[in-house]
Design a protein around this nucleic acid. Structure first.
Lengths: 344, 344
DNA sequence: TTGAAAGCGTTACCAA
DNA sequence: TTGGTAACGCTTTCAA
């Protein structure tokens, strides 16, 4: 860039942000022409010399269009808003999420994640609505209410998609059937002849959303089999696991579903240290099929969760935006199956 | 897009998005009054009955202010933009990140994460600049250039903060000294009498940003000691680890720094399965101090990384926004120390 | 081929 | 205490 001045102060107090009017002035044309050139408007034909002058002027000024002004004028945006929060999630979920974002970008949407920690349902919906997104994809961080959905739709959102453990009225709901995770794990344990089955409930906040349905699923699996389910609160700390292991024999359990691989690994180690044979005396099953679970001895049995592809979800969003009249539907988002290794 | 000149209704058969003008009409007042009431403008006093009428009208219509229009009018926003991408990060980083977001929110900023996967430096800077954020905090997903920083500042960003492995010109740079992680790990191994030290280099994309500096740090640690460093490419798969373990004795290594706990655990298991005693024949050190590392036998030695608090970083952002004339500085963001367990 | 002007939803200034 | 009005930056229709 040509900076003829010897000293360019970083931030001259008066330096304004260049607008299309500045570009027009420098190029010696009107603002309309600038817009035509920079947006490659095909309806209008601009001479090549003019185009070049405009482009050079824009370049020289470092002009960048103002998204807010543009979408204000246009009356709509292509922003897809994804509320985020602090729910600790595994690599599976992260990968899905990234693929989803990438696919949306390919469909020419601007993906914006909005940190929504600590917001209540309606408060959150209002905050999101201020940005006038064309679609909101809520991954369950904030429990959206029908009221909140109404606010969003009234403010122009053409699609509200919830991706959670249960359907929300008025939205395209994608249900992650967390119950099934607990169900297949527990059914597997029952089928292997286990009768008293512990189910780990993490005490860490934010996980109740997943652990509750998983426990319910476990209960469904034992219904009518004579086996029983015992909830086991557990913090993700060695001390907590050791305490639990110390009273293991009093609990009289012969199997445990560890919520996920991490909690399962923690508990399995504590059980082994307490002299309880795995899987001999107690079977252990995790979930998520982490690589690390295969490194323990015995190798950890697990529930493998197959997520819908991020690309598919992106296409669903796109369709919902283009055809908002299609009524929202609820559909399953993931499938689960047991991968039996050595710990069960 | 060539569309017929016929007017296509933007919002088919639906009521339009309510604006402050609609609220004013319903309440029987002017738009200005609506603005005063809804923003609690203290400079103007509005009678209580009027306030009530306005509030009720807004409520009835489900009015939500239009953030773009507001910031267009105001000439500035309080948006802090955080580019995100798919770099796989550990729980330590996530926790820091969430704390940071939360703290920014408390300081009344709107935190927006912008999915920037696959964007080049300048392209990305331009995309971010379109949103006219008051500050950009780049966590290193996209290698920001001086050019990119200039674009952002010209478009009104009052602070650009980079949080990466090396400083970027013109920004408040917070350097995560990844080199030190490798340095302290290797120094520890050398001090324990190890001479030929392997350093794992993950083959997964996106990690080079961290692994390169860590390897450099390891080299610094052996300089002048007579010990040597050997880079060890490794995929995060059992097969890859087993291959590496199979030719371990040919490599003649007596220690390895495993990049982080996960790779270290993977490799340690492969070494043990190949009959190589840990730490007797080969010492292993990871990094991140994951709980899972403590579950293996021997317990995994590790490098504990202390991150700066998210709250501190949020305050730095706030200060940089309020006093943009203060020259950008580079400062260290994290400190590292070895936690010796049993594997070294 | 280009330009003038309207208007998107807000808010701040100045009158009434 | 309230209302009219201009302006923020952009796109688009209409006119030249």
């Amino acid at each position: 860039m040509s900076q003829p001045t010897e000293r360019t102060p970083e931030r001259p107090a008066g330096r304004a942000v260049p607008t299309s009017a500045d570009v027009a002035r420098l190029a010696g044309v009107s603002r309309a022409t600038v817009s035509y050139v920079l947006n490659n408007t095909s309806a209008v034909r601009i001479s090549e010399p003019t185009r070049r002058r405009v482009r050079e002027a824009a370049e020289e000024l470092g002009y960048v269009p103002h998204a807010a002004a543009r979408s204000l004028r246009a009356g709509h945006s292509r922003m897809v808003l994804l509320p985020t929060s602090h729910v600790p999630v595994g690599p599976l979920y992260s990968q899905f999420f990234n693929e989803f974002q990438w696919a949306l970008r390919r469909l020419d949407y601007t993906v914006v994640q909005y940190g929504s920690v600590g917001l209540e349902a309606e408060e959150a919906a209002r905050a999101w609505a201020e940005l006038r997104p064309v679609a909101v994809v809520s991954l369950g961080e904030v429990q959206l209410t029908g009221q909140g959905v109404e606010i969003l739709k009234r403010s122009g959102a053409r699609a509200v998609i919830t991706l959670g453990t249960r359907a929300v009225e008025g939205t395209h709901a994608l249900v992650m059937d967390q119950g099934k995770v607990g169900e297949v794990a527990t059914a597997h344990l029952v089928a292997s002849g286990r009768r008293r089955i512990g189910v780990v409930i993490p005490e860490e906040p934010g996980l109740a959303m997943f652990s509750g349905p998983r426990l319910d699923g476990a209960r469904r699996a034992v219904a009518g089999t004579g086996a029983t389910v015992v909830p086991l609160p557990l913090r993700y700390e060695e001390e907590s696991a050791n305490e639990l292991a110390a009273r293991w024999r009093d609990l009289g359990l012969d199997a445990v579903f560890g919520y996920n691989d991490e909690y399962a690994m923690l508990l399995m180690r504590a059980l082994q240290d307490a002299g309880i044979a795995v899987p001999g005396e107690t079977a252990v099953v995790g979930a998520d099929d982490l690589l690390l679970g295969r490194l323990l001895r015995p190798r950890l049995s697990t529930v493998r969760i197959d997520m819908v592809l991020g690309r598919e979800l992106a296409e669903l969003v796109d369709r919902a935006v283009r055809e908002p009249e299609v009524p929202p539907r609820t559909r399953a988002l993931l499938d689960s199956r047991v991968v039996r290794r050595e710990s069960s």
